[in-house]
Amino acid sequence: MISNAKIARINELAAKAKAGVITEEEKAEQQKLRQEYLK
């Protein structure tokens, strides 16, 4: 099960992506976390 901290990070990265200020490194982290969440 995914931790609350990881869910919070997913939401934080989603907000950054929506604002258009996300880095390529953060995009990769976001994809990794989303895949983990979906498992």
Rank of each mutant, 00 (worst) to 15 (best):
V21N: 12
L13R: 02
A19G: 06
E25W: 07
K39Q: 13
K16H: 04
K16N: 02
A15I: 09
V21G: 06
K6R: 08
A5G: 09
Q30P: 00
E12V: 05
K32V: 08
Q35F: 08
K27E: 12
R34F: 15
K27Q: 10
N11T: 08
L13A: 01
N11E: 11
E25L: 10
K18N: 09
E36N: 04
N11R: 14
E26M: 02
K18V: 11
L33F: 01
Q30L: 15
L33G: 02
E29V: 01
A28Q: 12
N4K: 14
Q30W: 15
K6G: 06
K27Y: 11
K32H: 08
I10H: 05
R34D: 15
K18S: 09
A17H: 06
A14S: 07
K6E: 05
K6W: 03
Q35L: 10
A19N: 12
G20I: 01
I22C: 02
K18H: 10
Y37A: 13
V21I: 14
A19K: 07
Q31N: 14
K27G: 04
K18A: 15
N4W: 02
T23Q: 02
A28I: 13
E26K: 00
I10S: 05
M1W: 05
E25S: 09
A15K: 12
K27R: 13
E26P: 00
E24F: 05
K16T: 01
K16Y: 01
L38Y: 09
K16A: 05
M1V: 12
M1P: 13
Y37E: 14
K32A: 11
S3H: 08
I10M: 15
K27W: 09
L38V: 09
R34H: 15
K32W: 09
E29N: 00
K32E: 12
I7W: 04
V21L: 12
A19Q: 10
L13N: 00
A14D: 13
N4S: 12
T23L: 03
T23P: 00
A5W: 01
A17I: 05
A15F: 05
T23G: 03
Q30D: 07
A5Y: 01
K18R: 13
T23R: 03
G20V: 02
R9D: 02
Q30K: 06
E26C: 03
R9A: 02
A19D: 07
Q31R: 13
S3K: 10
N4I: 14
I10D: 03
I10Q: 04
N4A: 14
A5V: 11
I2W: 03
N11V: 14
A17P: 01
V21A: 10
L13W: 00
E29G: 00
E36S: 04
A8S: 09
E26V: 00
V21S: 13
Q35S: 09
Q30T: 04
Q35Y: 09
A5N: 10
E36K: 03
A15R: 11
N11G: 09
L33N: 03
N11M: 14
S3E: 11
A5S: 11
A15H: 07
A5T: 12
E24G: 05
L38S: 08
K18T: 08
A14K: 07
A17M: 06
A17T: 07
S3I: 10
I22L: 13
L13M: 00
N11Y: 10
M1D: 12
E25C: 07
